[in-house]
Nucleic acid binder design. Structure first.
Lengths: 124, 124
DNA sequence: ATACGTGAATTACATTCGTAATCTATCCCG
DNA sequence: CGGGATAGATTACGAATGTAATTCACGTAT
């Protein structure tokens, strides 16, 4: 299990863009971020890019003037780590109560319920 | 929906003790913490108590020399907030993928699977 | 060549967090 | 009464985070 660097709350936003769009330049990044949330300040986004490169979550290749950033860690790895940490911290590591919490609190659509039951069947 | 203060990773340990045991003194707290993890340093625990009081997650009443700390926010409130934040951050708010992740990644026992299916039935 | 725009590099700065140590007030014991 | 134990209060201090501004370097348009 590869150790992934710790990704902070806002850094996740950056990573999710890169995971979904693949490698991209700082500007493409910023555009994508601002598309969904105008409050992202370009300078701030740049700072996160640099930090993510420093913590080896991203790398970049020069492409003329601009850099192209790409992920060094997969979404899967980070999701795993964050999920584990969340489960541990908030539910003391107990899976069942955690799942129960979500099933009970978030109203699931009939189809979502069906899908989940399907998943559970497969696990059996 | 009451706004709960942001509880940090380690602060969660403190809160969980107080939620489970109810109000208790600093020393009872520390004993409980160290019971499960000897590496808890008493001074560090005291620091967290103070911080949690400052951020209005705990309050205390004087009981002779010592203080008795009790929760100002419920576990339910904090679990809700943390869960929402986690879901948003890591899964972009999509519940189904999140649940699927856990169901697929953590090996569930047969009985857990049965319980969950039971829960889902009730939601239907 | 020269100033301007643009991207990256460097610097800034308050907060929060992790991790305690030190200071101070008090109580009990001898 | 005086000194140690003990509980809370204050102080410490670096790393991480959120949030940018400033500076530097280079290519391009006058």
């Amino acid at each position: 299990m590869k150790r992934v660097p710790r990704i902070s709350e806002n850094e996740w936003e950056i990573m999710r863009v890169i995971w979904s769009r693949g490698a991209c330049s700082a500007n493409q990044l910023i555009d994508a971020l601002r598309h969904r949330d105008r409050s992202w300040h370009p300078k701030t986004a740049k700072t996160y890019l640099t930090r993510l490169v420093n913590k080896r979550a991203l790398e970049f290749r020069k492409d003329g003037r601009a850099y192209v950033y790409s992920a060094l860690v997969t979404e899967q790895q980070c999701v795993d780590a964050a999920s584990e940490s969340f489960l541990e911290r908030v539910f003391g590591g107990s899976l069942r109560p955690m799942l129960a919490h979500f099933v009970e609190h978030k109203k699931l659509s009939a189809s979502e319920i069906r899908e989940l039951k399907q998943l559970l069947e497969e696990e059996e």
